[in-house]
Amino acid sequence: MSRGVLVDTTLCTGCRGCQVACKQQNKLPPEETTFFAKAGGYQNPADLSARTYSLVTFNEVENKNGHFDWVFARRQCMHCEEPSCVSACLVGALSKTESGAVVYDETKCIGCRYCLLSCPFGVPSFEWEKTVPFVRKCTFCFTRQAGGDAPATVNGKALDSEQRARHKETQTKPACTKACHTGALMFGEREELLVEARNRIRKNPKRYVNHIYGEKEAGGTSWLYLAGVSFKKLGFPMHLGERSFPSYAKAAKDGVPHVMLGVGAMLGGFYWYNQRCAEVAKKGE
């Protein structure tokens, strides 16, 4: 089963605890930033980078009364169901794991940046300032997800099964979802999160717009979003369509052996025909 996260932006208070937890988990160096450096005001830093894998976005949205509301959303790797970056990578440094995470193996990467170009959400970042640069992005904490077995004893005391389960649950969550204290980030099976998201919309149709972002965008993503205003106002790309981008590439790639046969047959045929014509002409003389 493939896991995901449901981001309910209506519950987010913009505390950026998730952003800090992400920095700690990935041991990322700080960034020098200034408020209002770019459009976005208090959003800090202004954008994702090789040092910032996840970012709470601050959006000013006009409400019914003609005033502005803060609406907070979140950017990080969406962990696409059919990722463009994985389709793009020519050395297989990027792959989609069964648990849903799109992971990067820096020991293979040559630094061609086709993944940056192809990402529909502008997520992967490059270590431009380094002389041996790698690609950086949210890992969905796949190492946390894979581990988390509780130790047999803690302070000399054996753990009971309930304690073990609780330990496992907290230790295998992605760091950001563990840090979130308002329930805006919910980690779980993608299918169950979709059911949950639909339930929330059905129970509270006034609170939410009827759109689960990530359910279908560009073939669907592991991360899903709910919002009270149009996702366009939160800066999400709205023109991606429902077809996955790698499906275009796959159509082209699947044609390779057929082209090899077709072009070969055509060339051979023309060559043979021209040779025959030349022979016949010679005999006629």
Binding site: L90, V91, C109, C112, A249, A252
Partner: peptide, 29 residues
């Protein structure tokens, strides 16, 4: 030129032994 452009020039040979058959750039290489 590709060796100048890519981040890690000496790894330009990687596609010789890494074979992700789904990648179009792998085909070009």
């Amino acid at each position: 030129s590709l060796m100048v452009d890519i981040g890690i020039p000496w790894r330009i040979v990687n596609p010789i032994w890494m074979w992700p058959e789904h990648s179009l750039l792998f085909e070009v290489a």
